[in-house]
């Protein structure tokens, strides 16, 4: 079972991303997944989060994620807005961050970090700063889910704007990297069922 927490700002498509990730895993990879959005006093720009759990076996737990294996930041300004992105994390927790460069303020500097400039990818592919589909590609690049499943789920969810969003996902998957010196992502087998977290 892999538990994922996605933080971002209202309007960035955080909830949609959690749903599309789960559709990719549950429908297109035939594993199990559930997306649990947290609803509150919504407004554009306010910090929001959504939880996703993906698993090879049926998922019993029905609540929120308290010990994330992955923390995904659609916008690192949530840290300045008082969101404790370290909540429930451990040394093993992997961070996936939408940013141009890693910043000193990150409280997770000793954790494994994947970085991608999803904002730039989204602006290039979609012409709008909605990084959710690019970040879904980044999740595939980080090995959480297969890119083909992500593309299929985006295609079924986004209708006419699917091609642009698929492009964003592919581009972000290509650009994501684990550290500054690493080569851009190589092709890796990222079907959820073969994921390292399931095998351990």
């Amino acid at each position: 079972m892999i538990q994922i927490k996605i933080y971002g700002l209202g309007g960035q498509g955080v909830v949609t991303a959690a749903k599309v990730l789960c559709e990719a895993v549950a429908i297109h990879e035939d594993a199990h997944a559930q997306a649990i959005p947290a609803y509150g006093h919504e407004r554009r720009g306010a910090p929001v989060y959504a939880d996703a759990v993906i698993s090879r076996d049926p998922i019993k737990m029905k609540g929120f994620v308290y010990a994330p294996d992955y923390v995904v930041l659609f916008d690192d300004s949530v840290i300045d807005k008082g969101i404790d992105v370290m909540a429930g994390t451990s040394e093993q927790t992997v961070f996936i961050v939408n940013t141009q460069k890693l910043k000193d303020k990150y409280p997770f500097k000793s954790n494994k970090i994947y970085r991608v400039d999803a904002q730039a990818v989204a602006l290039k592919s979609l012409g709008r700063d909605i990084p959710n589909t690019a970040m879904l590609g980044a999740l595939a690049g980080a090995g959480i889910v297969g890119i083909e499943a992500v593309k299929a789920a985006i295609t079924s969810k986004f209708g006419d704007s699917a091609p642009k969003n698929v492009e964003a996902a592919e581009e972000a998957r290509r650009l994501i990297r684990a550290d500054e010196k690493a080569e851009p992502n190589k092709d890796i087998d990222t079907n959820t069922k073969n994921h390292a977290a399931f095998v351990k």
Partner: peptide, 12 residues
């Protein structure tokens, strides 16, 4: 069904 925990949770 439990509000949000089921009503807004995506599952297959």
């Amino acid at each position: 069904m439990d509000g949000f925990f089921l009503s807004h949770m995506s599952q297959a």
